[in-house]
Design a protein around this nucleic acid. Structure first.
Lengths: 174, 174
DNA sequence: TTTCATCCTTACGTTCACGTCAGTTTCGAG
DNA sequence: CTCGAAACTGACGTGAACGTAAGGATGAAA
């Protein structure tokens, strides 16, 4: 993905990255993020507003939002799910709560101080969430594949008709 | 959703079918159709209003709409596409215009008096429409399948962790 | 320090896809 | 013919998912 700005806004010259010598302070502003994921700042703020995206933690209200590449990726995933699953943002939120839980699990599991019982509990919870998503995705995928096959069949029939026509033409020319 | 009438509305006793001896006058009223395809009369009228469904031809405005099984099937297909492709009704309309064209083709092809040139033209048009739909469907299907695989992988990882936990427990109990 | 594109918040506007209400009319059973 | 469930036609209401405009603040570059 090299094409940085497909929607080429010509008014872009100043404002490089706030890369002030600190290499791991890779943070993007909302407009840049919007361009990256093909949306608008408004949408990103809206998603934050309804709780789909976490509020940038401890941002002194009024200051600019800054996003890490990880958060950008997260947003991309959100939009992907939204498009593919065609669910409401509210439903999506519950699905992503699952994601959150899994992230939580990962975080907790990396620490050593989590007692066994709790650990197992978290794992099973995560599994349940995944299974719910998986069921949803599988169902839709199956439906779509079915539709694809049907379309292919129809296509074949049309092509056959076209060939029949050409054959008829050939015979007539003889 | 308090399930108003999933399938069995108890308030149905009168009003059987207008099957007055005429066997091929199999026509349903809007309410029945709505129940059949899991929607509401309002939605069906709306679809007609925006041109998604053809206005019941030559219906003396004010009389009840009557639907043939074919039209019911058509509506079912419309809703299926809407759900699976997740497009706006406007986009769907253009996609269905393609369907219309194909129906037209079928109708014309069944007649003998269509000249060859026109016939071929229609066929190629139909093919184009099908290809457009197919591309759309394939793209989405592929994306969904990809997502499915990813979820499966994640699932495997979680299950492995659970197993690891159980193994550890076993060793500890020894 | 000035500059100015970009960002902030607040708030009202908009489009889509229907829901709902009202008053009227149709039509099949009795 | 009567009766009532269901349909008809406007017309307005609604929730979701943003768009847009206003007025002011931010912050990297010059």
């Amino acid at each position: 993905m090299s094409a940085p700005a497909p929607t080429g806004s010509p008014t872009r010259s100043r404002r490089t990255k706030p890369d002030g010598g600190d290499p791991h302070a890779q943070s993007l502003r909302i407009g840049d993020v919007a361009r990256l994921v093909q949306t608008t700042p408004r949408t990103i703020r809206y998603y934050e507003e309804i709780g789909l995206l976490p509020e940038a933690p401890a941002r002194p209200s009024g200051r600019h939002r800054l996003y890490t590449p990880a958060e950008v990726e997260r947003l991309r995933e959100v939009m992907r799910l939204k498009n593919l699953l065609g669910v409401s943002l509210e439903e999506l939120k519950t699905l992503l709560t699952a994601e959150e839980a899994r992230a939580e699990v990962r975080a907790q599991l990396s620490r050593e101080d989590v007692v066994g019982e709790r650990r197992l509990e978290l794992l099973h919870e995560a599994l349940g969430h995944i299974d719910r998503q998986l069921e949803l995705v599988r169902h839709r995928a199956a439906e779509l594949t079915k539709l694809e096959h049907e379309l292919c069949e129809t296509r074949k029939r049309v092509r056959r008709k076209i060939r029949e026509y050409h054959d008829a033409e050939e015979r007539a020319a003889r």
